[in-house]
Computed example of a mutant assay.
Amino acid sequence: MVELQINTTQNVNITFVAASVGERILAYTIDWVIKIAYIVVAFQIVFNVFEWNDAIADMDYWSQRAIYMCFLLPVMCYTLLFESLLDGQTIGKRIIKIKVVKIDGYQAGIGDFFVRWIFRIVDLNLIGPIFGSVVALITVVLSKRSQRFGDMTAGTSVITLKNKVNISHTILEELDEAYTPKYPNVIKLSDNDARIIKETFVKARASKDYETLIKLRKKIIEVVEIKDFNSSDIEFIDTILKDYNYYTQRM
């Protein structure tokens, strides 16, 4: 399992799990089944039902090729079209629950999807769809971030959505609009300090490890330089985290 550390625009590191090779292959296969189905149905309707074979029989070779390419255009642009419309997913990716994201924390845009699509010529189709897929597979396996050449160039990767990251996995806290902070000195903490505090706090509270909560509270008081408080350890630490979010979100 490959984990991707993505730094968001709020300077928060979020860990995503990269899509496995099996998930990517399965999504790729589903997409190809859809493409083949389109080709079969489109050509059956156009050339059998409307009898276009007779209509283009007298055309020159290149005109015939141009007509065929027009019908194949949706297949050629399939990935670019759907990743742009479905926010980083093709139909196959959506079924398997994987998605293309930027590794710098920004939302992937049509420019990123275009670069990935263009590089399919290199790492998927240069030596044929079968051998090209092998090249892409090897690249994904050997890459530290599970990227093929197109991903490396576009600065993207494919993640799984089956293990969704929610706010409880970050230093962010949900605050009411009327929230009033109690400890302004929390600005002495860094993002890394707040992350360690929250991770320790969540684990200790869940396991009812009161000894760790006491040590954590004492350490916070020492670093933040709080002289007194009149709440339990759990309430105090929870307030510290909320206060930190209150002040840092307004900087």
Rank of each mutant, 00 (worst) to 15 (best):
G111C: 05
A27M: 03
I56D: 15
Y38Q: 05
D104P: 00
D123N: 07
I25S: 15
V46C: 01
T79S: 11
G128S: 01
I95C: 09
I127W: 05
I130S: 03
I127D: 12
D54R: 10
P74S: 10
A27L: 03
T79A: 12
F82W: 08
I39V: 14
N48E: 13
I127L: 14
G111T: 06
A37M: 13
F16T: 03
L72W: 04
I98A: 04
D104K: 02
F114G: 11
D112T: 07
W117Q: 08
I103S: 13
F119N: 05
T79Q: 15
C70G: 13
L26A: 12
I91F: 11
P129E: 14
I121W: 13
V40W: 05
D104Q: 01
W117G: 10
V115Q: 12
I127C: 12
P74G: 14
D58M: 02
K93E: 04
W32A: 07
D58R: 01
V75P: 02
F114I: 05
E23F: 09
K102I: 07
E83I: 02
Q64W: 05
V46N: 00
P129W: 13
N125L: 11
G109A: 00
K99F: 04
I95L: 11
A55R: 10
A57P: 09
I121D: 10
I127T: 13
W117L: 06
M59P: 00
L73E: 12
Y61H: 09
F16S: 08
V40G: 12
Y68K: 03
P74I: 02
F50C: 11
R120H: 09
D112R: 01
V75S: 09
A37V: 15
Y78A: 02
L85C: 01
P74H: 05
D112S: 14
I67W: 06
T90C: 10
L72R: 01
L124T: 08
D31G: 10
A57G: 14
D123Q: 05
I30L: 13
A108T: 03
F82H: 04
L86S: 02
A66G: 15
G92I: 01
F16Y: 14
N53K: 03
A55T: 13
S84K: 00
I34P: 12
K97I: 02
L86R: 01
I121T: 07
I25G: 13
D87M: 03
I36F: 06
I34T: 13
L72Y: 08
I98N: 07
E83K: 00
R65K: 04
G105W: 04
G22Q: 05
A37F: 14
L80W: 08
V33P: 06
L124D: 11
R120G: 11
I36L: 07
K97P: 03
V21I: 13
V75L: 07
I34G: 14
V33K: 06
M76E: 14
K93C: 06
L86H: 01
A18G: 02
C70Q: 11
L72A: 08
A18H: 00
N125V: 08
G128I: 01
F114L: 15
R116M: 03
K97C: 06
V46W: 00
M69D: 13
R65Y: 06
G111H: 04
I98F: 01
V122I: 14
L124Q: 10
A27E: 07
V33W: 07
K35W: 07
A42S: 15
I110H: 04
D112G: 08
S63R: 09
I96P: 09
